[in-house]
């Protein structure tokens, strides 16, 4: 959690993306303060202590990866749109540039 905070503080990680990490940090913190809770969950699920821990951490990692996938999808979509706009702008600029030089030559 300290690492996550430090990353946010130094603006290397946007708050938007850190929510899930913070959440998993909080959960780990809760479990380390009250280790009995893990025992309880293990008994309810009928699994060993270690397995429960693995399952929980796996779930969180899964969520984080899923979150990343959506972020990447958005980014690539925006990237595509930017490229398209850029190419159109570039075309317009070239046209204007041509017109401008023609005009200057005429005068």
């Amino acid at each position: 959690m300290t690492i996550v905070f430090e990353l946010i503080r130094t603006r290397r990680l946007k708050e938007e993306y850190s929510l899930l990490w913070l959440l998993s940090g909080v959960v780990i913190l809760i479990f380390s303060i009250f280790p009995k809770m893990l025992d309880l969950i293990s008994r309810i699920m009928g699994t060993y202590y270690l397995t429960t821990m693995l399952i929980i951490s796996f779930l969180f990692l899964l969520l984080i990866v899923l979150h990343f996938s959506t972020v990447i999808s958005q980014l690539s979509k925006k990237n595509k749109e930017l490229t398209q706009e850029l190419s159109i702008m570039d075309y317009k600029f070239r046209e204007l540039d041509k017109q401008f030089h023609d005009l200057v030559d005429k005068l």
Binding site: K80, T83, Q84, E85, S87, I88, D90, Y91
Partner: peptide
């Protein structure tokens, strides 16, 4: 011809869409 230049390869879908965006605008 009029030319739209992409700075890198984006795939046929993105290229076609740029064409349609151009046509629309």
């Amino acid at each position: 011809a009029k030319v739209l230049d992409f700075p890198y390869n984006m795939g046929i879908g993105a290229a076609m869409q740029a064409g349609y965006k151009f046509a629309y605008k």
